[in-house]
Amino acid sequence: MTRPIAIMLTINAEPVTAMVESRLSLADFLRHQLRLTGTHVGCETGSCGACLVMQDGRVIHGCLTLAVQADGSAIQTIEGLSESGAIADLQAAFHERNALQCGFCTPGVLMTAQELLQLEGVPSREEIRDALSGNYCRCTGYQAIVDSIETTAQRRAVGEAEQPA
């Protein structure tokens, strides 16, 4: 067995140091070592999107990243995005529109949505569907998810327009 490796990184704006096996995925590290269980594991091959987290501001698969690779980077999980209030409007839109059922895909879907919404302009429904192409949801049929992201984009656009210059 190879020896565990020490890593230091920032998770949800808090510094974390840990010893990890080099084969340990970031998703399993977050879930089982740090107990941040909002990140889910659905396929371990980058096909389902349940494990998406943000690394240095970009959405990535927690299953296709090793914990050791994340050494020195800044990770945001659903717990962090929630508690910072950054996606409160998105979460509210999902809640009102019932854009989730079992909720297993939801943290990953919210990651994709948040990255998309940080781009300029209001995405079309087709662009939203395209952005979600790596997020598998077996329950909703996707339409409510698309609706909620569209609603949030419109609300944010209006909100920004109303901000004093």
């Binding site: 999107g49 970009r58 698969h61 990651m111 994709t112 790596g134």
Partner: peptide, 9 residues
């Protein structure tokens, strides 16, 4: 090429 999260990495 694949999906947004794959393209990010």
């Amino acid at each position: 090429v694949a999906h947004p999260a794959i393209r990010n990495k």
